[in-house]
Amino acid sequence: MENLANALVVLSNFVIIPALAYGSQLALGALGVTIIVAVLRFSNFAHGELMSFGAMSAVFAVWVLQWLGISIAPLSTALLALPVAIVMTVAIALLTDRFVYRFYRVRKADTVVLLIVSIGVMLAMAGIIRFAIGPDDRVFDDGVRFIISVADFKALTGLKEGLAIRTSQAITIVMAVLCVGFVFWLLKYTRIGKMMRAYSDNEDLALLSGVNPDQIVRWAWVLAATLAAIAGTLYGLDKSFKPIVFQQLLLPIFAAAIVGGLGSPVGAVAGGMIVAFSEIALTYSYKKVATYLLPEALQPDGMLQLLSTNYKYAVSFIILVAVLLVRPNGLFNGRPS
């Protein structure tokens, strides 16, 4: 029984808890992507850079707060900086829409054109971010590192393996639950949410009903940018902030959105978890788990690792292709909730 408990602790440390935190970050990113797809009807390839911009804004705000001697110890100062990051990200999203996307939207440009334009916006924002903060890693988590440490868990339980839960992981999961709950409440119970869903379902009928399209577009960008800022800041808090990483995250984020069904908020959350657990579970070495669960004669010599961690993003691609082949509309049929 003790061996089973030790195996579960190892799995929790290296698979379950990291996947929940990573899945929460992907879910928030995919939720922002799916809102733009549902309302504006194009895939925004610059969403990763919106996340990067939000995280960068949080880093700058943390530096200012630290210089002023303001903190909320034992929690990270990044939580105080988050509202600043949201405001800055919403501002850059609205400005980009006003001076870039609106030009093509007014002329009823094809969705492929808007997608290509978003790639141009992505490259421009990437250059601005690297010029502003540089390409290096930035660690800005200054709070207490662990809620539960390995030593404390071992002392409490007497097990050989110790469970470790980082504060950033707990903050990520809690924040994701709160944000997802708020988005679902906003879309289902508020006037603006109902107008956004009506506009997404049938644009012409919504316009005939008196829906203001400019207002819907603004709210869509505000919501998507807010989620991007939170997702980017939480990812940087949990790991570190490095601008190039957010371009790499585009694949798992879009994989999560497409797996769940583009345009489906429920699907975005489910897709984020599916992609995260798949990536981590398929690239983890299970040798240590096997040593606790198998008799000594059957214990393996190899690492019991299906894929190298170098192929982490390839897992997202494989999942994406498989879903497109088997169920092109995604698990939730791409219908807005």
Rank of each mutant, 00 (worst) to 15 (best):
F332E: 04
A81R: 01
S24T: 07
A19L: 05
L75W: 13
L50E: 07
F153S: 15
T233R: 03
A124Y: 09
F42G: 10
A155E: 15
D97Q: 05
P74Y: 06
A61Y: 08
E49F: 06
I35K: 10
L178W: 09
I116F: 10
L187F: 15
P213A: 14
R197T: 04
R197D: 03
S76Q: 00
W185D: 10
T89E: 09
G23P: 13
A170S: 12
V106S: 07
A314F: 14
A91F: 12
V269E: 05
I258K: 08
A198T: 02
A109P: 07
I16F: 14
P328N: 02
I165L: 15
T96Y: 05
S24K: 07
R197S: 06
I147R: 06
L11F: 06
Q299E: 04
D110R: 13
I128Q: 05
A27F: 11
L4V: 15
K194W: 02
V259M: 08
Q305F: 06
A27D: 15
L159A: 00
I148S: 09
L186Y: 05
M1K: 10
I92Q: 06
D301T: 08
L178M: 15
M273S: 08
V266W: 13
L223I: 11
F241H: 02
S278M: 04
P74G: 04
V112P: 06
I280Y: 10
T172E: 01
L8S: 08
E203V: 13
Y235T: 04
Q66R: 13
I16Q: 12
L249I: 03
V144R: 14
V139G: 04
V177I: 13
V321G: 05
F182V: 14
K242N: 05
Y286G: 08
M175D: 01
A170E: 12
G48C: 10
L298I: 00
L282N: 10
M273H: 15
Y101N: 00
S200H: 10
L324Q: 08
L20W: 08
T111W: 12
L227A: 01
D201Q: 07
A30W: 07
G158K: 00
L186G: 02
G32K: 11
W63T: 11
Q66F: 01
Q169F: 03
T77F: 01
A46N: 03
I192R: 01
V112E: 14
P300D: 05
A270K: 01
V289M: 03
L156K: 15
S24F: 04
